[in-house]
Nucleic acid binder design. Structure first.
Length: 137
DNA sequence: GCCAACGTTGGC
DNA sequence: GCCAACGTTGGC
């Protein structure tokens, strides 16, 4: 199975990249949207995901690895919702802002733009590579 | 099963 | 603080 790429949003005043780094490993739970849930359930161990700061910052700040896929959301008593565990892998050399993503034609089809309210979105390999390349400059 | 009203998310 | 996009709820 090949690796898949994702983008996960969090409001940094609630849970930020630095919080995840401080914890070492975090559980991505509290998602209450069916499309996002399907994405969480599609994640595999070793998949990589961008950590995006919504609301404050509006930028991709780091890369995480899915350390434990296929969990049920511990914050949900009914057991209907999904969760995964993630580990911080690398902070981007420089954050890539939403503004910059929008200004880049090669990234115009990104799911995060198409479905802006989705908190967990897939990222295509070419989009992943492009963002990584941009963060190095 | 349709659709209007309402709530939430997230960018501006 | 406003608004657009969507999801959910509830009346019919």
């Amino acid at each position: 199975m090949t690796k898949s790429y994702w983008l996960m949003k969090s409001e940094p005043d609630v849970y930020s990249w630095d919080d995840l780094v401080a914890e070492g490993e975090g559980t991505w739970d509290g998602v209450r949207n069916h499309a996002a849930k399907l994405h969480l359930q599609a994640m595999k161990k070793g998949d990589e995901a961008f950590f995006y700061h919504s609301n404050i910052g509006l930028e991709i700040v780091g890369i995480m690895k899915i350390s434990q896929p296929g969990l049920t959301d511990p914050s949900d008593p009914s057991g209907k919702w999904a969760a995964v565990k993630v580990k911080p892998q690398k902070k981007l050399k420089r954050p890539i802002s939403l503004k910059e993503i929008k200004a880049t034609p090669a990234l115009a089809a990104m799911e995060m733009l198409r479905q802006s309210r989705l908190s967990v979105a897939p990222v295509r390999p070419d989009e992943w590579d492009r963002i990584i390349a941009m963060s190095r400059t």
